[in-house]
C-alpha cells in the first residue's frame, strides 16, 4: 500500500546567533500508511516537533524529501489540504473567539462554508463532547477543552492525515481518556493516518501501530510496538520471598546464582529478578532443597514500552 506520509532522509540544521550549526534532525526516514497510528517518541529536544513542522511546511528541511499523499511538503498549499494539525502547547486557536466561532473561522479558512460547515461543526462538537461549552470563549476554557477544540479544528476539513504533537499533554483523566479513544476511532474507524508525538509511553503502547524512537535528531529504532518489545525486552521473572526464617547462608547461595539479582528488600519480603526460565528453575530448585523461605509468588513480568524506551535512550 502506498504510504500517505513519506519522510525520506530528512535533515534540519539550525544556525545559532553565533553562527554555530545545530543538527536538530539528522537523515530521518519513515512512512505512515493509511489508517495507521505512527508514534514518534523521543526525549525533549530530540527533534519531534521539528519533524512535525517540516511535514506541515512551517519549517523548511535542510535536506531530504517529505511527501504527503504524493505532494512535496514544499508545495504547502497542496499539503495543507491533506493534513490536520494539532501543534504542541496552546498554539492552535483564536482565544478571543468561542469554541464554535473558532471551528467556523478555521472551517472558512479551509474553504468550508454554509450548511455543510454547520453540520460538520455540530458533528465535531458532539464527537468531542463539547456541546455544553461551544459558546464559551476559548481563553476561558480548561486546557483539556482547548485541546479538544484544537483537535476539532484539525479534523474540520476531514483530511486524510492528522499530525498530533503532544495532544494529551497536561490533560485531566476524563479528557485524556476521551481524546485517546477519539484518536483510536479516527484511525481505525475512519481510516485516518495519524502521526502522534508523546512522552507518555503507556499511551504510545496502547495507541500506536508502529513507533520510531528518535534521539538527538536520529532515528534509533523503528518497528511495530510488539516487534519492539520482542526485540528489546529481556523476559524476566519475579520471585517474591517471605523474609521470615530466611537463613543468611541460603540467602548468600541465592545471590551467587547466575542471572539473578536482588532488587528489592523491605522488612517483610525480598524480590529476586530472574532473567530466564532456566535460571528460574535453578532458583526454585535451590529454594525447594534448602527450604530457605516461603515463596510468596512467582510472576512473569510483561515488559513495557517505557522500559524499552529508557533502555534505548540510555544506550548510545
Amino acid at each position: 500500500m502506498e504510504p500517505l506520509v513519506s519522510i525520506q532522509k530528512v535533515s534540519k540544521i539550525f544556525k545559532t546567533r553565533a553562527n554555530k550549526e545545530i543538527i536538530a534532525v539528522n537523515k530521518v526516514s519513515f512512512q505512515i500508511k493509511k489508517g495507521e497510528i505512527f508514534g514518534l517518541l523521543g526525549p525533549n529536544g530530540a527533534g519531534k516537533t521539528t519533524i512535525v513542522k517540516m511535514i506541515c511546511g512551517l519549517i523548511r528541511p535542510s535536506g531530504g524529501k517529505i511527501f504527503v499523499n504524493g505532494h512535496d511538503s514544499l508545495q504547502t498549499k497542496r499539503v495543507h489540504k491533506q493534513i490536520g494539525v494539532v501543534l504542541e502547547g496552546n498554539r492552535n486557536l483564536e482565544w478571543r473567539l468561542s469554541a464554535r466561532e473558532n471551528l467556523a473561522y478555521f472551517g472558512n479558512l479551509h474553504f468550508l462554508y454554509g450548511k455543510g460547515l454547520k453540520k460538520r461543526i455540530d458533528d465535531l462538537l458532539e464527537f468531542l463532547d463539547l456541546k455544553q461549552q461551544q459558546h464559551n470563549l476559548v481563553g476561558t476554557l480548561s486546557r483539556g477543552m482547548q485541546q479538544k477544540v484544537a483537535i476539532g479544528v484539525a479534523m474540520l476539513a476531514d483530511p486524510p492525515v492528522l499530525l498530533l504533537d503532544e495532544p494529551i499533554l497536561g490533560l485531566d483523566v476524563e479528557s485524556f481518556r476521551l481524546i485517546k479513544n477519539r484518536i483510536k476511532e479516527l484511525s481505525h474507524k475512519f481510516g485516518k493516518s495519524v502521526l502522534l508525538t508523546t512522552h507518555q509511553m503507556n499511551v504510545a503502547q496502547e495507541l500506536c501501530d508502529r513507533i520510531a524512537i528518535i534521539k538527538e535528531g536520529k532515528t534509533v529504532v523503528e518497528d511495530r510496538v510488539a516487534g519492539l518489545i520482542d526485540r528489546f525486552s529481556t523476559p524476566h521473572y519475579k520471585v517474591c520471598l517471605d523474609n521470615q526464617g530466611m537463613n543468611p547462608n541460603d540467602r548468600e547461595k541465592l545471590m551467587r546464582l547466575p542471572k539473578t539479582r536482588f532488587v528489592e528488600q523491605d522488612g517483610g519480603s525480598t524480590t529476586i529478578i530472574v532473567e530466564d526460565e532456566e535460571a528460574l528453575w535453578t532458583v526454585l530448585k535451590l529454594l525447594a532443597t534448602t527450604r530457605a523461605s516461603n515463596i510468596l509468588f512467582v510472576r512473569k513480568d510483561n515488559p513495557s514500552l517505557e522500559n524499552i524506551f529508557l533502555k534505548i535512550i540510555r544506550e548510545d
Partner: peptide, 14 residues
C-alpha cells in the same frame, strides 16, 4: 502572541 499564527498559516493559501 495569541498563539494561532501557525494554525492560520496551515490554511491552503499563500
Amino acid at each position: 502572541t495569541r498563539g494561532c499564527l501557525e494554525q492560520v498559516y496551515l490554511a491552503p493559501v499563500s
